[in-house]
Amino acid sequence: MTTPSPGRYELTLVVDGTTVAYGWWDQPSTAETKWSDWRRQHGRDGARVILVDTADGSVVRRWPQLTPRT
């Protein structure tokens, strides 16, 4: 028996350094909607919301945005 793939797009919510929620979706539009929902619901100091395309490991969206150091 094989385990089905969890989905291409992985969404992770980290609060104060602890992963408190995660999910996977195959459709990018669904993953983007969930990212926006989680950011709106949980966006505060100490929280991070990260959406990754597991096909290539790229970060699709993150909150808060990283600012480059000068």
Rank of each mutant, 00 (worst) to 15 (best):
G46F: 11
H42M: 10
E10Q: 06
D16N: 06
V15I: 12
G57L: 00
T54A: 08
R69A: 15
D53G: 04
V14K: 08
Q27E: 09
G43C: 06
L11A: 07
T3G: 03
R40C: 02
K34T: 09
S29M: 11
M1Y: 14
R61V: 10
V52R: 02
S5V: 11
S29Q: 14
P6R: 14
G7C: 08
G46Y: 09
M1T: 15
G57E: 01
W63T: 12
D56E: 07
R39I: 00
S58A: 14
S36Q: 10
E10G: 04
G23K: 08
P68H: 12
D37V: 04
R69I: 14
G57Y: 02
W38P: 07
W25A: 13
Q27R: 09
E32I: 04
L66D: 11
T18E: 15
T19G: 08
D16I: 00
T12W: 00
R48G: 04
T33Q: 04
G7W: 05
P68K: 13
Y22A: 08
E10M: 01
Y22C: 01
D56L: 05
G7F: 05
R8P: 05
S29N: 14
V52H: 01
V60I: 05
L51W: 03
G7M: 07
G17K: 07
L51E: 07
T30E: 11
T3D: 09
D53E: 07
W25D: 12
G43M: 06
V14R: 10
A31S: 05
G17I: 05
D37K: 01
T33N: 05
T12H: 00
L66H: 07
W24C: 09
L11G: 05
L13Q: 06
T18K: 13
T67A: 14
H42Q: 13
T18P: 01
G7P: 06
W35N: 05
L11V: 01
G17S: 07
M1W: 14
G57M: 01
R8T: 15
P4T: 11
L66I: 04
D37S: 06
G17N: 07
G17W: 03
W38I: 04
E32T: 04
V52L: 08
W24H: 11
S58H: 10
D26P: 00
W35P: 00
D45A: 14
V59G: 09
D37Y: 01
Q41V: 12
A47W: 03
S5R: 14
G23H: 09
R40S: 09
R62I: 11
V49E: 02
D45E: 13
L66Q: 11
E32A: 10
V20W: 00
Q65I: 03
R69W: 13
G46L: 12
P64I: 02
L13W: 02
P28G: 12
L51G: 02
R39G: 07
V52W: 02
D53Y: 02
